[in-house]
Design a protein around this nucleic acid. Structure first.
Lengths: 120, 120
DNA sequence: CCCTTAATTAAGTGATTACTACAATACACT
DNA sequence: AGTGTATTGTAGTAATCACTTAATTAAGGG
């Protein structure tokens, strides 16, 4: 259930498609394989990758395997991304504030060619 | 800047470590390479992967390359995860509610073997 | 112009990935 | 037991990955 495995699992478009379908509720391995342009064996292998990553759980019901999404692993990965994003955004915002405060003096006030007040 | 590339980039622990360091602000390629147990060449290759994924931007400053985090790609990936997580959680919550309300009746009311009322 | 520093690119290697086709398992129905 | 259905496991293969060393580009200073 390491982050390595979670992100590696999510890197494949077929596996993300499977997760997208699972958002609508549990499915059997066959139902998941049906719209995909690859063999059932390949789907089974993808499911194994997702299971190892902790993103899904599989349970038996007669011959069929019920596949369900596991929210915990999603939460963990989402959390890491959110943390990185938030800290960066915060740093970005404060930089914005600094720039907004300190900019006013730029040119024309300290221009040496206009400060030669020789008129007197 | 596809999701494939973003998640594939995040699947490597070295690259996540680089992103973690970048949360503290911009760094040069050398600064990023210094604590890592791999060659500078390898770090440069990792940076290229992160750049292709849109997770960082690189700019030149004299001989050095300044590396900066790019929040947009992080936002996109975080958004996908969050959407999957939220919809699942919502479905989970309503299932919880249904179970809490509907459990009382289970079996024994529609059993065909007990409806042969031959006693008359 | 030559040399140092900072970083990237090129080539090569061993490990891993995604797929297919085929074989094996597991369960249900007769 | 024997057949059909749902799914997984096992080679085998072509492509990609992470790494190393060696060569290359680019900027600055003598």
């Amino acid at each position: 259930m390491s982050m390595d495995h979670v992100f590696a699992a999510l890197a494949d478009p077929t596996r993300r498609a499977i997760i997208d379908r699972l958002r609508g509720g549990d499915k059997t391995a066959g139902e998941l394989a049906e719209p995909l342009p690859i063999s059932r064996s390949a789907v089974s292998q993808h499911l194994k990758v997702l299971e190892t990553a902790g993103l899904i759980t599989r349970s038996k019901s007669a011959q069929q395997r019920i596949v369900a999404l596991n929210a915990d692993a999603l939460t963990e990965a989402a959390g890491w991304l959110q943390a990185a994003h938030d800290e960066w955004q915060q740093r970005f915002d404060s930089l914005d504030r600094i720039l907004a405060e300190e900019v006013p003096t730029d040119t024309s006030t300290t221009d040496p060619s206009t400060t030669d007040r020789t008129a007197d």
